[in-house]
Design a protein around this nucleic acid. Sequence first.
DNA 1: ATGAAAGCGCTAACAG
DNA 2: CTGTTAGCGCTTTCAT
Lengths: 336, 336
Amino acid sequence: MIPIANIKDVANKAGLSVTTVSRYLNDHPYISDEKKKKIQKAMEELDYAPSTLATQLRSNRGKTIGVLVSRITNPYFAYLVDAIEKKVKQGGYHLLIMQTYGDKQEEINTLNMLKEKTISGVIMCSVENDFRTIESYTKYGPIVAAAQTDFKSNSLHFIMTNQEQATYDAIKFLIRKGHTRIAYSTGGDFTENSHGAYRNRGYLKALEDAGIQFNKEWVFTDNHTIEDGMAIAIRLSKLVESRRPKAIFAGSDEVAIGIIQKLEELNIHVPKDMAVMGFDNQPFSALAKVPITTVAQPVGALGQQAAELIASMLEETEYEVDQSQLKLKIIERESA
Amino acid sequence: MIPIANIKDVANKAGLSVTTVSRYLNDHPYISDEKKKKIQKAMEELDYAPSTLATQLRSNRGKTIGVLVSRITNPYFAYLVDAIEKKVKQGGYHLLIMQTYGDKQEEINTLNMLKEKTISGVIMCSVENDFRTIESYTKYGPIVAAAQTDFKSNSLHFIMTNQEQATYDAIKFLIRKGHTRIAYSTGGDFTENSHGAYRNRGYLKALEDAGIQFNKEWVFTDNHTIEDGMAIAIRLSKLVESRRPKAIFAGSDEVAIGIIQKLEELNIHVPKDMAVMGFDNQPFSALAKVPITTVAQPVGALGQQAAELIASMLEETEYEVDQSQLKLKIIERESA
DNA sequence: ATGAAAGCGCTAACAG
DNA sequence: CTGTTAGCGCTTTCAT
């Protein structure tokens, strides 16, 4: 691991000053072609690459964007990260991935990296803390959150999809299929200010509008994985039939596939005995044992726009989010 | 976006020198408790956080590890990244994710970030260039590749699983099931030095050992996604039955699920008309329409050990890879 | 068109 | 135990 040449070495070799070399590096005007050649030659011979560390320290601007996800193994986040990465790369940015696993403190830790200049901006694909708290970190750098909210802020920016409406539509879809006994699974805890509060509202509102009584026994909280879905199925199966729902909004395709799998194992058939509705429209959803009826999220557009928005904040240019690209859509297949 | 306090501000506020503050920051001995308190207080009041940029520039050691994957949306890589992230976090490192999408130049670009000090080390979860080339970048920082190879190097380190043996075993498994017409899909181009060369060898060797004639018509190259799998199924279906294989080694569960899905649509049944063998044992594989028989990769151990290995190189300590954790294993389900 | 010199925020001799 | 000082590699006035 040999010491790498620095700008001074290049300057010496080229018989010029560091200033000129720096100018060359930054595409300044006023350098004669002759010297340009010399510099290029020196750089090649020395196998030179400018230290991003020094550049960033001096110019006070980095090229790394932090991306917060709850876990990268959730395909929803993987696809989001993919879309973000493709876009930011165009602007010469890089992505530092941080997983929170639902932990508030981990999220704060990442936000603090803004202060330490480890990253220059943050895209929050999931959010754990309340927006008031998060907003307070915008004084350290730009933050974009992908989340639905009423929270108004000049400094904290959002890329929003209408989760409430989509959930309302999804429940309505089940109701139109004749369902009235509709269970509900969420990644949060079903309280007012938690994860998925908007979806909760959509669920409640759809029931209410249809004159269906809400049944607290039928809400399942804190579910994220295939295993969580399986656990739900087991609980569902243990309910005597008179108290058992006939449909469930799973909150994610991962949970949905777990539910379906276990239900079938337990000889409860989908959708005949139990309709299951997913969320996300992940690649495997169409290919499951019972293809999943779900709501598609516009991940590609979401990631791309989040990337463009954060870049515009970093570069102090304007960017207008295009809501028309951010629509959710029910995909009807066989599970409901 | 307010300017952040620096070490000098803290020193001034605490009425001490920057050295003492720096010592405090780095847990040096020999600071009186009284001053420690003062420093803590000053830091809090100023909302101070040390600039990682300056620290790294000065100490010439960063805390960011680059991770190269071909695409993060492939669950194999997502789980690998997850395992790596969990481990490096313990050492205070962060992960910069780079996707190559199979592009050699992208891989080189990432390796070059070592030179620029953007990252301090690289874990290559996928590899595109030849090892001779990659090895030449080790002079800029530690590189760990997760790949099987005979390439010997003092500077370039490997975390290896025996892909050849696993493929041999998988093909053997099919042969024991009575198959002799076995097709083969790979992510590479089936040449000697490409992607998956070891798997190719395993395939060829298993055929040879069983006295089965190799049929070039039955190898499908450059397949990675579910869509690629579907395309294979279509090509398979177009073969007249006398020239059609009765089994296929898909190379990945993603490709396998695509093949199975499309085959079933085309009324060719798995495994009756065509056995399909996957690779990776991804979470959805057990839950597919026809649960996939596959070979499980030890992603967790792979990620963890890659992380420990790179950390040991960065910290110049010793680390011995534990091969016993790195075994591949056939998981028999229904597709073959 | 080019260069000298100051300094970004921090660490590490060295001196006391 | 604490402070002074010289850089790490780069950008950026300010001269020339």
